[in-house]
């Protein structure tokens, strides 16, 4: 009983921070949700509703797969906007002076992290809910189980991306700079490096890239997931020069990459956060 009481009182600050974070960020959540619904309608409804000649995919899962264009953008932007200030804002605005003596700083960050994760999860839910409704409207029910697998992959992806941003937030000074840096890394740097490496050595699978691992969100929707290596890339050979585009990692490799990113990002963030002075 004592243990439960201790656990409860230990968890209480996390709960309070969690609720506070939800209250603080709800406007951002609403804004992202509205944008998400707008983008889903823009990509998955408008082109089919207004252009009769624009053929819809044959089956429901293909409809979901081909209409995930904006998902990784939404998730990257949402993660950057929600998680960039998670640590650095306490130092930048020096709120740590007020908060840290009253609440364990790790509990504060955990509460904030869970709160923001819940909100980004909500935005992902809004995306899948809207897309799912459109899928039901056009193709009828039930929703294919792969759709839920894709949602699970998206949750894992936001876990990895958010931890990656939390790591940047742990050593950067300002929230805005963290947002810009992480967006640049996630949207541009990973792709540029991947392109260079695959041009130099087409056989090298870009498993270092979060973006590449995130492709699993859509590729898991394939009716037959590519079994062989050759099925997982597309390449053109001009004379002796090969340009290869890797489409998706294997399911196990993708999940492993995302988990490794999550683990190490949290680890380094925790180490830096421990040593960081107000």
């Amino acid at each position: 009983m004592d243990f439960l009481n201790k656990l409860y009182s230990g968890m209480k600050p996390i709960g309070h921070t969690f609720v506070f974070e939800l209250k603080k960020q709800w406007k951002k959540f609403i804004a992202f949700s509205v944008i998400t619904v707008g983008l889903v309608l823009l990509a998955s409804w408008l082109p089919y509703a207004f252009f009769p000649g624009n053929a819809m995919p044959e089956i429901q899962t293909e409809y979901f797969r081909t209409n995930q264009t904006f998902l990784s953008f939404i998730l990257i932007f949402a993660n950057c906007f929600f998680f960039s200030g998670i640590i650095c804002s306490e130092y930048d605005k020096q709120t740590g002076f007020i908060l840290f003596p009253k609440i364990n700083k790790y509990k504060l960050i955990i509460g904030k992290y869970i709160g923001n994760y819940a909100l980004v999860m909500g935005i992902t839910g809004v995306f899948y809910f809207t897309l799912g409704l459109l899928g039901l409207y056009y193709y009828g029910g039930p929703l294919n189980f792969r759709f839920f697998q894709s949602f699970a992959m998206a949750l894992l992806y936001i876990l990895a991306v958010s931890s990656f941003i939390t790591f940047f937030s742990s050593f950067m000074k300002k929230e805005n700079i963290t947002i810009i840096t992480t967006i640049l890394i996630l949207l541009i740097a990973f792709n540029v490096i991947t392109q260079f490496i695959t041009l130099a050595n087409p056989d090298f699978e870009p498993l270092f890239s979060l973006q590449y691992a995130g492709n699993l969100m859509s590729s898991i929707l394939y009716l037959e997931f590519p079994d062989t290596v050759a099925e997982r890339y597309f390449q053109i050979t001009i004379r002796d020069f090969t340009i290869r585009t890797w489409n998706t990692p294997t399911i196990m490799a993708g999940i492993s990459v995302l988990l490794i990113y999550t683990f190490f990002s949290f680890l380094f963030a925790a180490i830096i956060f421990k040593r960081r002075q107000l």
């Binding site: 009769p52 624009n54 819809m56």
Partner: peptide
């Protein structure tokens, strides 16, 4: 049975 109307021109 079912069919999906996908496009027309």
């Amino acid at each position: 049975g079912k069919y999906i109307v996908r496009s027309w021109y």
